[in-house]
Computed example of a mutant assay.
Amino acid sequence: MTTGPGDLSGANAAGDVDVEALLKRFGLSDKEIDTYLTLLEHGEAKASTVAEAAGVSKRYVYSASEELEARGFVTVNDHVTPTTIRANPPGEVVDRLANDAKSMRPALEARFSREEAATEPFEVVKSRVTVVKRIRRAIAEASEEVTLSFPLDRLDEVTDDLRDAVDRGVLVLLLLTGADEGEADLGERLSGVATAARTWGQPMPSMLTVDGRTGVVAPAEMVARTNSGTQAIVFTQQQLGPVIVGSFLGNYWPAAAEAVVTEPAPLPATYTNFRHAVLQAELHRRSSDAVAAHVSGRRTDSGDPVETSGEVVEVSQGLVSPANNEFPVQHSLTIEVDDERISVGGKGAFVEDVEATEIRLEPSVAGE
Rank of each mutant, 00 (worst) to 15 (best):
V172D: 00
S247C: 03
R105F: 06
N273K: 03
E221A: 11
R299L: 12
V320I: 01
I85L: 09
Q231A: 05
V17F: 06
E307L: 14
T3K: 02
T3H: 00
A349N: 07
I33T: 09
E41T: 12
S65L: 08
A197T: 01
G55L: 09
P254A: 02
I233R: 14
G297D: 06
T214G: 00
R96F: 03
S103H: 08
N325Q: 03
L22P: 04
E326P: 15
P322M: 09
A142W: 01
F26D: 04
R189W: 14
A356S: 04
S103T: 12
E157Q: 12
R213I: 01
H79V: 15
G201A: 05
A47L: 04
G241T: 03
A98Y: 03
T81K: 11
R360D: 12
P151D: 11
E32G: 10
G187Y: 01
A21N: 04
R341L: 06
A184D: 04
L162M: 04
A51Y: 06
M207A: 14
A356K: 00
K102H: 05
E340R: 14
L267H: 08
E355N: 02
V170F: 15
S321R: 11
E120S: 09
G192S: 00
I85T: 06
P90E: 04
L155E: 04
A256D: 13
V320Y: 01
R360M: 08
R299H: 15
D164R: 04
G229V: 02
G297L: 03
K58N: 02
R168I: 06
D211N: 11
H294T: 07
D156T: 07
S288G: 05
A87T: 01
L190H: 13
S309A: 13
A110D: 10
E181A: 13
R96E: 03
P5H: 14
V216G: 11
A54K: 08
E340Y: 05
V124R: 01
D160C: 05
D30F: 02
N77Y: 09
G212I: 00
S316T: 08
R136H: 11
S63N: 12
V210N: 09
G178V: 11
D30C: 14
E69G: 08
E326D: 13
E263C: 08
G27K: 12
P242M: 13
E144Y: 07
N99C: 07
G187H: 00
F350H: 12
D161A: 10
L108T: 07
E69F: 15
L283I: 09
E340C: 14
T334Y: 06
R25Y: 09
I33V: 08
G345F: 00
G241N: 03
V260H: 01
A293S: 13
R86Q: 03
L68P: 06
A110C: 00
L68W: 12
I359T: 10
E340M: 08
R25T: 10
E311P: 04
